[in-house]
Design a binder for these strands. Structure first.
Ligand SMILES: [Mn+2]
Ligand SMILES: [Mn+2]
Ligand SMILES: [Zn+2]
Ligand SMILES: [Zn+2]
Lengths: 146, 146
DNA sequence: TTGTATTTGCAATTGGGTTGCAATAGCAAC
DNA sequence: GTTGCTATTGCAACCCAATTGCAAATACAA
């Protein structure tokens, strides 16, 4: 499969081992049109060899650590994961849009960043500019919703 | 106390009973300069008669239900509560600093906001400018840490 | 006061997420 | 292809914020 090759390369580029769990999870995230919870992913992968609960948590956190996925706590305080759009370029460089309906995260490439002024003694490691709202797919007229 | 009168009236307007828990919690939220977790509030109220854990959860949810407070899941997926704005500056109007060590949130009053440009069909309900890092209390020299 | 619906306190439970550790399996070097 | 090393996985136990069920207490209207 073409996408599998693509993903394998991404993983190897990071000096990491290419494992079925990583391949399947990242492929799934890339094909999903909304942020997926751990439960969503477990369910989606339970045909074929099931992935262990804990392994899945660890794979997801590893993907986030590597810049290949985004992790957001939704309104019900459940983590939702989505594939990073640019294949792992630094996401500190741009802003993000989080859809509060479907949980999907979109990269906003051209949003200007403001340089924050911090109180004495504070040190910033990461600046996050997050816009919340409803994405195009979820932002339908009220009368058309069910 | 002036504020207590004020809050009592708010509660009665909603046809609800005025109880010590509701008075104390809402007064605390109104005086807080950041979103407070259940744990924060429990701690803040433990001088005087302590409020039961579950009662506190129920009072907080009731305040949210009544539109008197806001409830958001933070990055560590813990709910944080804040008083609904009553004419003062809302928290959306400025940036926030989140300490990745202690989880506290600080308001950065004078950070300029950039207006984000969104793709077609997207609608923003809330813009969050969040700076992550180490606060003054946690930002001690590496060699002094344990 | 008294009656009663609302609110509270306590114990038990849920559920998403994490940790410790032994077993497994990528993959680089032979 | 075999071997060896170490990253990764699987399992059981655990954590902890939050919720639920139910009986006891209490705000407040009558
Ligand atoms: Mn991004
Ligand atoms: Mn604020
Ligand atoms: Zn959406
Ligand atoms: Zn701190």
């Amino acid at each position: 499969m073409k996408d599998t090759q693509d993903i394998s390369r991404l993983l190897r580029e990071r000096g990491a081992r290419v494992t079925p769990a990583r391949l399947r999870v990242l492929a799934l995230l890339r094909s999903a049109e909304r942020g997926l919870s751990h439960h969503d992913i477990e369910k989606a992968l339970d045909d074929g060899t099931p992935v262990d609960r804990v392994t899945l948590y660890r794979v997801l956190d590893w993907l986030v650590e590597q810049g290949l996925a985004h992790k957001v706590a939704d309104e019900q305080r459940v983590f939702r994961f989505s594939a990073a759009s640019t294949g792992g370029e630094p996401h500190q460089a741009h802003a993000h849009f989080v859809c509060d309906d479907c949980g999907k995260v979109f990269c906003l490439e051209d949003t200007p960043r403001a340089a924050p002024r911090l109180p004495a003694g504070f040190a910033s490691t990461q600046v996050e500019f997050e816009v919340h709202g409803h994405c195009a797919a979820c932002n339908v007229p009220v009368e058309a919703r069910r």
